[in-house]
Amino acid sequence: MNIFRLFGDLAHLASIFILLHKVQTSRSCRGISFKTQALYVAVFMTRYLDLFLGTWVSFYNTLMKLFFIGSSCYILYLIRFQFRTTYDPNLDTFRVEYLLVPSFILGLIFNYEFTLTEVMWSFSIFLEAVAIFPQLFILQRTGEAEAITTHYIAALGIYRGLYIPNWIYRYYSEGSVDPIAVVAGIVQTGLYADFFYVYFTKVLQGQRFELPA
C-alpha cells in the first residue's frame, strides 16, 4: 500500500458516497447512467471472483471489495426501483454490447493465464476502462450536468489518475509491473481528459457544467 493507491481508493469510495448523496437528497437519478452503473456491477463481480476462491490479500482488500459489490448493486436498485420514475432511458442509449464484446475478446487474448478467473479478471480490467462511456454519453447528449454529478465523475477520474503514480511507485519500490492493468488504466484515465478540462475551467470556478456548443 502506498499513498497514491490509498488516496485513489479513497477517491473511489468518495465517488460512491457522492453518487448516493446526489440520488438520496434530490430523490432523483436524473443524469445518472444506469448502464454505466450496471457495467460497474459486472466489473466488480467478475474481478472479485477471488473473494469466493479463498485468495486472501488483506482485511482492507476484502472489505473494500465487499463494499464495492454491495454499493454498486444498491445503486442499481435505487435507479431501477426506488427512483425509477426519475430515470430517463431515452437519454441512456449507449449500446453496451460495443463495450462488453470487445472487452471480453481482449480478455480472451490478453490474460496472465487461460483460466476462468484470470480471463474474467482481464475482462473486468478492460470493461472498467470503458464503463464510464454511457455516463459521458449522457453528458454529451444533454450538454450540461448538475454540479454534483460532475463531482461524482471527477472523483472517479481522480481515483483512476492516482493509480498511475501508484504503479510508478510500485515499479521502483517492488520492481513489479502489471502490464494489463497499466495499459488499460492509462487508457481509462485518458477518457476523462475532456471532462476534466471542462470541470476545472467551469465547475470549480463556480460555473455550470456546460459543454461548448
Binding site: 490479500v57 482488500n61 496472465y112 502489471d178
Partner: peptide, 10 residues
C-alpha cells in the same frame, strides 16, 4: 509456467 501476479489492487 508463467507466474500469475497477485491481484492485490482494487
Amino acid at each position: 509456467k508463467e507466474q500469475v501476479p497477485l491481484h492485490d489492487e482494487l
